[in-house]
Design a protein around this nucleic acid. Sequence first.
DNA 1: AACAACGCTTGCCAAATGACAGGAAATGCG
DNA 2: CGCATTTCCTGTCATTTGGCAAGCGTTGTT
Lengths: 189, 189
Amino acid sequence: MLQRFLQQTGFITAAQAEDIAAHFAARTLSRHEFLLREGNINDAYLFLETGCMRAFAYDTDGNDVTTGFYTGGQVVLEVASFFNRTPSQENIQALTDCTGCTITYAQLNGLFHARPEFREFGRAMLVRGFANLKGRMLEMITTTAAERYEALLKASPEIVQHAPLKTVASYLGITDTSLSRIRKESLRK
Amino acid sequence: MLQRFLQQTGFITAAQAEDIAAHFAARTLSRHEFLLREGNINDAYLFLETGCMRAFAYDTDGNDVTTGFYTGGQVVLEVASFFNRTPSQENIQALTDCTGCTITYAQLNGLFHARPEFREFGRAMLVRGFANLKGRMLEMITTTAAERYEALLKASPEIVQHAPLKTVASYLGITDTSLSRIRKESLRK
DNA sequence: AACAACGCTTGCCAAATGACAGGAAATGCG
DNA sequence: CGCATTTCCTGTCATTTGGCAAGCGTTGTT
């Protein structure tokens, strides 16, 4: 699964993918387990195979705010902490039992150095993440909370299924009360 | 100014910066002039020296939505279009007369290839942009419109000064009516 | 089994925001 | 200069959302 993922951008051949994938180590997480805790440096680049996870931060009042959800086939990491080697302001936690494989910063950087095609891949992933975030921002500005909920439900039903309502609500930028009402309304149809 | 910018991450020495800067070409834009139009491929990596600019997209109802503001000392480009060589969904336009210097995708890529330290710099810029966008998203979720306005006013007063109120409002995720009222309230203090 | 913690819903009311429309001031252009 | 356009403010009213609190079922723990 990781090898197919590496090949998707077209920068990496099947043989190269196999070679690169060999540097990853299998990793499992139990439900509620943290991959990264606030204040630590994110040293694990995780390719998630099964299960789902979330990233969250605390606002100034101490409420936790979900900043991202992840499902199988995605890369899970806090970009700034990982690449700048700085303490993370975010936490990353498993919403369900998870499986995947990881590689450390040092190993990844070694591969980037040795293999230009993998470096290209890494850049493409960064650019993709950037574009996704921009899309989410535009969605946040231009659509209603109900529309955002419907979109999330359509794009990642497993998230809505496994994450507590409160968690989903903070991701959508609303309170759990509002999401509960939105859900009720969408049932009426 | 560009040279100082290149040195700020610590990856690039003064001599290297001078060398790299020599590949950029001076560029000016008149007020209202477009650097990039929707549907075109963003081929110009612009380092903005003076003036301010904005990026915007259209929502499904045809309203324009400001997705970003830029001021002197910042790099201006649409990341996904530039790096993926795909048509942009965004427009980038000068809010005031601007000066800066540009480099094309081909040239930039050539430099990335030839100079590992500049490649590192490029990655650091991407990571920084990513982190900024994440911060803005968190701000959008956790703060009120009035607080976001105050923050923008503090961080980039020249933007608020030069951009029409409607443009600033869409950036903040509210209507021009609301921003007008927020402004009125903040004057009362 | 008993209890606490969590997760979700709901009612009530207040605050924030949007939609729409009108009008004044500033700006741009022929 | 004079006209059209843009920009901004404001009033009214509807809608959305939040804050708060109560209730209740589920889950987890001892």
